[in-house]
Design a protein around this nucleic acid. Structure first.
Lengths: 341, 341
DNA sequence: ATCGTGCATGACAGCGCTGTCATCCGTCAA
DNA sequence: TTGACGGATGACAGCGCTGTCATGCACGAT
């Protein structure tokens, strides 16, 4: 049953290269500590034998792994897959590898995964958001590896944070809508996770700052976001607030759905209805009319998170408690060109 | 520098539970071999001490890991993130974990990653596609763990395969377009990976079977797929083949771009231009007009791949060489309702 | 000639766990 | 009562690698 497919070991390489095992180990970990000739022989022996180090043995012996743990709510969400992409780009030229865990937006699952990840003594941990359970926060605070919270920047990072202010982004978008002459902007939200909550708060703040005292035009649902949900949310909104003349959507999927629903209802965009999304996925600019959105640098967040971890290992980089704001950019396109008439 | 954040070990649990270490190990691996009382004490001790097993030590001692290696070209592609989602759902109720590697469509990177993954003695390997380099194929064939090729079913799987025939899917879509009265269907393709090539071949076969001898209306590009690329490809197509009255798109992103570009050009869909995508992402049904597509069960592929690996470990499941066809479904929607007039 | 210094290398032990075999004990058939 | 048997538990060694020290050597300073 347990057929041993003979793995070449470090010792076998050592024999072939006529050095001791420890020298082979050094040639791999810190080549500069090994003489050029020895290194040469070892390199050849490794190639000849097709040797690949055993990460488990290395981890056990050294007490550390080259693994970066990544905790995100879900992989089937454009936002997180962009972040993940950035993370992979960040580790590309290193020996690091990624251990991905998905929490499904459950704090309990998150806590469990943190425990599992920490048991592997990772090189670093990247977690999405700032809403860890108290126990999870404690675990992370006591972890002896860099911990980077991504997606948003909060008041006090556990260790490091990279993200943006979703509140500010939504407020800017709201100001933009008002600026363009929309008089009754609404907010549509799905999957109301903490970041969505913050966007909603930013929307309300934007309305408040403009001195509008009208009704609170907000339609949200805990359902996961999707394009078809965008269609339904617009229908809901118009049923409840027929006067709404612009929507700030929690994310771009909803915005696309809103666009399609508006087309079905012959509501001219942007003349009768302004539409603004959040994240600025690639499709937004290609839509007809092109859809406005708040651009966020998701790829950069992932890459930067890895960068911070690597800096920390190099002894440089920002100190504990540093939050890096990657900001956002308002991409004003035709879908929010303003009311006509 | 190297502060030892004291990890509780299995031996400490053993002391606390007043049993030998090996019994604790057994209580974790195969609880039925341990008496109820001992199990009870051990469980409590584990909880009290917050013990988490060290996977590296376990891997080293047992010669295996509970890791499933997953090799996909890219994470920032809806198709693969759906598959990944399925994989995570597949392992949800097990002790398995996922090790993800992205090849960026490079056979060399793939080969390297296969080597790295195999060095961890994984419980299984899931690789996208059938186009491994000869060396990679050999590695996989000799791996002593189940290997599942996903995305498509080919002539001879290395071990197991789960997927669908992209050729048949595209042929069915082409037949559908012709069926609905479109006389000059074209094919638009981006990121012409092997699966896209197969779809193109299926398109041509569909045309051939219908006895059309017209020009080969095909526009492809090696660029990665995107919505805006769909816009550009339609522009290209119309410049070269103004008579084209329907497009089969390599994937749904392109189809969406085509729809937007058609709107910009005031080409009525489906009257003047039929549009069909591939994969049937959620947005297709929500579009206006709703877009036809070939539905593929990407989530199911991931789940099934894991299922096969778990079956194999249980000693059941299909034998080496089995290819599981998950099929496809033509979702005919308004975007291919046919020419008018 | 003597010593210290720095570099390249090696010996040794052990990381935390599990495979293998051995041991122990209670139970039941003869 | 005896022996066989099976279930529960334990002792031992070792997985492949690296941390820690120790060693050997060539070199220049004294």
């Amino acid at each position: 049953m347990m057929e041993k497919s003979r793995k070449t070991t470090l010792s076998e390489v050592a024999v072939a290269a006529n050095v001791s095992p420890i020298t082979v180990s050094r040639a791999l970990r810190s080549p500069e500590k090994v003489s050029a000739e020895a290194r040469e022989r070892i390199t050849r022996a490794i190639a000849d034998l097709g040797y690949v180090p055993d990460p488990a043995a290395r981890a056990l012996a050294s007490g550390r792994t080259d693994v970066v743990g990544v905790l995100i709510p879900s992989v089937s969400n454009n936002v997180f897959s962009d972040v993940l992409h950035g993370i992979y780009d960040g580790i590309a030229d290193s020996t690091l590898s990624v251990q991905l865990g998905t929490t499904g937006y459950s704090p309990l699952a998150e806590e469990r995964l943190i425990r599992v990840f920490l048991s592997q003594r990772p090189s670093g941990l990247i977690v999405a958001g700032h809403e860890q359970s108290p126990a999870a926060r404690r675990l992370l605070a006591e972890a002896n590896c860099p911990v980077v919270q991504i997606m948003e920047i909060g008041p006090q990072p556990i260790d490091l944070a990279v993200g943006l202010s979703h509140f500010d982004g939504a407020r800017a978008a709201t100001a933009h809508l008002l600026d363009r002459g929309y008089r009754a902007p609404a907010f549509l939200g799905a999957q109301m996770d903490p970041r969505s909550q913050r966007r909603l708060a930013g929307f309300r703040e934007g309305i408040r700052l403009a001195g509008r005292d009208g009704p609170d035009r907000v339609v949200t649902t805990p359902e996961p976001s999707s394009v078809s949900l965008g269609c339904r949310l617009l229908a809901d909104l118009l049923a409840r607030h027929p006067e709404a003349d612009a929507v700030l959507c929690n994310n771009d999927d909803l915005a696309l759905g809103v666009l399609f629903e508006a087309m079905r209802r012959n509501l001219p965009v942007p003349d009768r209805l302004g539409i603004c999304g959040f994240n600025d996925l690639e499709m937004m600019a290609a839509a007809q009319p092109p859809l406005s959105s708040i651009a966020t640098d998701r790829h950069g967040m992932g890459r930067m998170a890895v960068h911070l971890i690597r800096q920390r290992h190099g002894g440089t980089g920002p100190a504990r408690g540093h939050a890096l704001d990657l900001g956002f950019a308002l991409r004003a396109r035709e879908s929010t060109a303003g009311r006509r008439g």
